[in-house]
């Protein structure tokens, strides 16, 4: 069991490793933002520091921090005072969901962002990232479902699975 798990970890881990160009925040930055929130002198200052704390959390390496940031943004979304602020929060929510691997929700949030500002490069770039990541993880998922591991199996399985899925979709139409 241990050797099997170790082998699985190495195999899956190597496939999963990939470049990610969004910035990362470490715990020091998050702690700094926490202190800002705690020391905020008034409501306006607190809201600004909460926004920065949310930004730091969704860019964290720790999944539980990302979940915390998502919760904060969800709770404050209906209190946005301008489309610009809503746009910022939608983008940060999309970053958070991208980091937790929920690409569907991330893509949908980005579509909302781009409705507010269609030419926002930051959102367009993240959209491309989400799409690329979805494609790659989707291909890996197909390979896993067909029980194939390894480079040749991955490619073959992906192609076959994609073809069969397309066929079934077309047939259903």
């Amino acid at each position: 069991m241990d050797s099997h798990v170790g082998k699985l970890f190495d195999s899956v881990g190597s496939i999963f490793r990939g470049s990610d160009t969004l910035p990362w925040c470490d715990r020091d930055i998050i702690a700094g933002c926490e202190n800002e929130v705690a020391e905020a002198a008034n409501e306006e200052q607190k809201n600004e520091s909460l926004m920065r704390l949310s930004w730091a959390l969704v860019h964290s390496r720790q999944p539980e921090d990302v979940n915390r940031g998502i919760g904060m943004l969800q709770a404050s979304l209906d209190r946005s005072t301008s489309p610009l602020q809503t746009r910022e929060k939608l983008y940060l929510l999309a970053v958070g969901h991208y980091r937790t691997g929920d690409y569907t929700r991330s893509r949908q949030l980005l579509e909302r962002c781009l409705e507010i500002q269609p030419d926002w490069r930051q959102a367009l770039t993240l959209q491309r990232l989400v799409e690329d990541k979805t494609r790659r993880d989707g291909m890996i998922g197909m390979a896993i479902v067909t029980g194939a591991f390894g480079l040749v199996g991955l490619v073959a399985g992906g192609i076959i699975a994609a073809a069969s899925s397309s066929s079934s979709s077309s047939r259903k139409k």
């Binding site: 899956v12 691997g101 569907t104 979805t134 993880d137 989707g138 291909m139 890996i140 197909m142 896993i144």
Partner: peptide, 14 residues
């Protein structure tokens, strides 16, 4: 994209 999103959930689970 929709299909790939479904399969990416498999990857996420793994």
């Amino acid at each position: 994209i929709q299909v790939l999103e479904k399969f990416s959930l498999v990857t996420k689970f793994a």
